[in-house]
Design a protein around this nucleic acid. Sequence first.
DNA 1: AGTAACTGGATAGTGGCAGTATCTTGTAGG
DNA 2: CCTACAAGATACTGCCACTATCCAGTTACT
Lengths: 221, 221
Amino acid sequence: MKISQLSRRTGVPVASIKYFRREGLLPAGRATAATLAEYGEEHVERLRLIKALTTLGGLSIAATREVLGAVDHAHSTESALGAISYALPVPVAAQPAGGTEEEAQAAASAQAEVAALIGAMGWEAPDTSPHVQGLAAALKELRRLEAGYTPGELAAYAALAESVARLDLERAAPLDDPVALAERAVIVFAICAPVFELLRRLAQEDQVRRRAARTDDAPGC
Amino acid sequence: MKISQLSRRTGVPVASIKYFRREGLLPAGRATAATLAEYGEEHVERLRLIKALTTLGGLSIAATREVLGAVDHAHSTESALGAISYALPVPVAAQPAGGTEEEAQAAASAQAEVAALIGAMGWEAPDTSPHVQGLAAALKELRRLEAGYTPGELAAYAALAESVARLDLERAAPLDDPVALAERAVIVFAICAPVFELLRRLAQEDQVRRRAARTDDAPGC
DNA sequence: AGTAACTGGATAGTGGCAGTATCTTGTAGG
DNA sequence: CCTACAAGATACTGCCACTATCCAGTTACT
């Protein structure tokens, strides 16, 4: 298959295919001559995955490269899952850290809060995990906005998150071929996050509507 | 307070403050002379919120403007919650829709799937809701990637999402002043989504670790 | 009154990202 | 041999979120 056919099959412009190849997201075709290369089904597949990660998952090109790299170097299924999880961008950008005394104290207390939560949930996570860092940063900022979680609230959310993660793993688990599993895992981890977010919004919408109905119907009660 | 003091108080460069004002995110100060304006605590507060939405919530300037507009025009608490929810960006970009016959069919079946889910959950949501649209688009794409949900899985996720939404509303509910509630709601809706996402990742990380331990320790079982 | 420092506002410029277009050289097939 | 297309390198574009510069007006201080 030549590049123009690959383009027609996937709906991705030729120039973009070349761009993805340049950026290391797509392997080069098998060269048959100095100015000719052959592409296969795996390229179609890979392009689909790239499109899904960038448009559905909202990943940047750089993040997509990381994630695909983790997929490709998936020796064992578990290491692949871990690598993918770490390669996904953390949705919280750490603040530049003012350097103030209280700043540092707030950061420390947020970290302690995260550690306490992890302990309470019986989870295992190294302090170096980007998720731990990101969570601490987010909690610190929320506290500053006077919208911090109580430990109880946080634990409640964490319990629900654990249930969601269990479902995620079940969805990813059935496959045993490392590559297939890695691809599935990418989809489940990266793209199903937006799906859950949408479900949550729908549920919020419904809750708001109920709340509105309650206060309208029975304003005095 | 002059603009330079506002800048020092918040850590936001003067040029950025001017930019936010230009973009309609920050109201102008009270002009005391042709080249002099007075800023107050509400500006400090608003800047904090802007920073939180853009860096923590990952919102674009345009989305932030939408959301803040919803906060400002919060007549009743419920309308504010709804407006904010709709103003938040949907994390799934709809595909350009190929126009093929099967494309259209896939889109229709995804929409039916969403409608069925909403019915099964007893939720109420108009078809025009951006969340409904986005969810249908995401499900369609996942099906195309051969990673679609079974109705049971989707329902399980939806049930968990409902629990999360209930917690969200509880966190937002205690306040009754519309403006305070709107600000709180923005934070809960926009910024706590990343927090939950991080919790989920942590839980996934733990689950993966457990799975790895299981297969390592008892490879034959 | 004079002047340095600062202010608000308008306008233009910067850097990064995600492509898109152009150009050169090299086949392939009739 | 000639036309059409292929591959790869390089340059360009549009958008976004700032950032810098410029100008005229104001203030504080001497």
